[in-house]
Design a protein around this nucleic acid. Structure first.
Lengths: 337, 337
DNA sequence: ATTAGCACTCTCAACCGGAGAGTGCTAATG
DNA sequence: CATTAGCACTCTCCGGTTGAGAGTGCTAAT
């Protein structure tokens, strides 16, 4: 267990290191905070903290640097969240309301705003229906030779697919079929639609129903991610060498980021999780931390808002901001529907 | 005008520099290619080439480096395109056929394949209708309080927008309205739809028609780009310092890349353009070249396939590959419809 | 016109050397 | 017994120097 004094010192070490990115020395702590104890005492305490794994040493004559456990402890119980100034809140909210295009533009904008606010990589994933249901579908004739199937889900997302058509079909015939099939499929989930397909005798109808079933399910796997802030993150001193920077760029490949965010996010809304370094278990990204929060609507459509950065990250700033943006998005997505 | 010998030397200088990324010396040329002239002669010729602006000098005792005009001349008349081996053709084609999801996944895949093939940044933009027309639109009720408008264009793309609804409307009422409005709007372009909106007396109908008009036009501006190969490009020696790498990352911001590609592409299909360094006029990217080709279908839906890289780029390899991928995509997009 | 030869320039890597920063330990102190 | 002053020791980092190597440009000879 840590004594109060050890905890206080650990806190200062983490704060100072997050601020300056330089190993922090015993003397600098005393001077900077006018501590009522000497640097030698600090050194003794630091040695204890190092024994317990909270901090480390780059080399013999360097100051101390937080270890993963040190950050963990800091985030868990030593840190005070940095409140978002009302002015900044307003700025963020205002920017987020400037939605011009569709959902995608909006998510991309959210990533940009968040990235700018925390100075690290921000990632936003598309909200994913957990068990979406079909609201409505429509068949549209294309070039007379193929048919466009448009399916609208009850969470407002739209998916389309082009179906080859052996014989040309006129639009009014398609309208009739649309009407007929909608009557049977509306409100069904993926599994139920799949089941329905097996019960339909008309082969063309069955093809369409099967396609709709796939569209409903498909959403689960085509989760796109919107990312911004690469430049800012790469400016962090941890990447201040060509090799490290290249590594970082490689590590931020889309699929890895997705894995990381997926790994880290808890299902429930309103909860912000923090995974530090190896805690997330995505290999090759041991030196990255992630702060993630889910957003979504009551209907169960859920996406993630996350910030990625080096383990030396402004957790005090990042955590409330991720939470705030996620909450805003939940609110907006609810309102827009 | 260049003598034959000067042209030959310029060609060797450019080739050698593209290959090695190091200034090329007179002696190395003689040795490597067993030229029947001495290095002193080469030096004299090089001095002429430098006077005419084809090559430069990093510093007094360094070899020669191609200047923009040198590259231009090389691409124009000195270079022989590097044919794509049948095996590689098959690989590319095969990969490109592995389409799982929708259009977006496909474009993203194309960017990845091209990037891997040329070792630089590859960009693919969504095909954009040049003057799209409405094929069909549909209104779908959401939560009883807002309405989802889905518009299908005659080139197969789908756009949606959520419209607030003062009073809840039942789906069958919406269906009726859908039918009525489709009869008047189908086949119209953006401008015609806009005009139509002014002639409609029912305010709710007018709102919808106006929204459709915007959706038709909107496509022109929400052109998304799919990008891959950042890592490979950053490995080029021109970015081998932290500052330069950061610059590069910043320069590859989405909107700039879009401007660049937009700037560079010629409208017509089948033509591959090369813009070297300052030729494209996008400020801050003077050291980037772009090779771009349009793709699309006969219906006039056009997107771009491009490769970005430092001016020292394997033009012989890149140009045919960009052209090939663009042609493949034109073919595929035609076939899919 | 070509080329051998050479002086001159510039870069680059390696190699000190010393200042500076920090620690760990020991011994003294309240 | 916790705290602290003092000091030796270690490691990094920076600036300056040096010499090798690579290339050019020029001159004079062929």
């Amino acid at each position: 267990m840590l004594t109060d004094r050890q905890a206080a010192i650990l806190r200062l070490v983490v704060q100072e290191y997050i601020e300056t990115a330089e190993p922090v020395s015993s003397r600098s702590l005393v001077e900077k905070h006018q501590l009522p104890i000497s640097s030698a005492t600090i050194r003794n305490e630091m040695a204890r903290l190092e024994e317990d794994g909270y901090i480390t040493h780059p080399h013999t004559s360097a100051g101390r640097v937080p270890a993963e456990i040190g950050y963990r402890r800091y985030v868990e119980s030593l840190m005070a969240e940095d409140p978002i100034a009302p002015a900044e809140q307003r700025t963020i909210e205002h920017q987020l309301h400037q939605v011009l295009g569709g959902l995608d533009e909006w998510l991309s904008l959210a990533a940009t705003i968040l990235a700018a606010s925390v100075g690290n990589v921000a990632v936003v994933t598309r909200p994913q229906a957990t068990g979406a249901h079909l609201k409505h579908m429509q068949l549209v004739e294309l070039h007379g030779e193929s048919v466009l199937l448009v399916a609208v889900m009850d969470d407002g997302r739209v998916r389309q697919r082009i179906l080859p058509q052996p014989t040309p079909t006129r639009q009014d015939v398609l309208n009739e079929r649309t009407l007929r099939l909608n009557a049977r499929m509306a409100g069904l989930g993926g599994a139920a639609t799949q089941l329905l397909a097996t019960e339909i005798s008309d082969p063309e109808d069955a093809t369409i129903v099967r396609a709709v079933a796939e569209l409903i399910e498909e959403q689960r796997y085509t989760e796109e991610t919107f990312l911004d802030g690469l430049r800012a993150a790469l400016e962090q001193p941890e990447f201040a060498s060509v090799d490290r920077m290249l590594m970082a760029v490689q590590q931020l490949q889309a699929y890895r980021v997705r894995r990381l965010v997926e790994q880290a996010r808890g299902g429930r809304l309103g909860i912000t999780r923090v995974l530090i370094g190896r805690e997330h278990g995505v290999e090759g990204m041991q030196e990255w931390s992630v702060v993630v929060s889910s957003y979504g609507d009551a209907a169960g459509s859920i996406g993630a808002v996350a910030v990625l950065g080096p383990t030396r990250m402004h957790y005090e700033r990042t955590i409330p901001r991720v939470r705030y943006v996620a909450a805003l998005m939940s609110h907006l997505i609810e309102g827009v529907r």
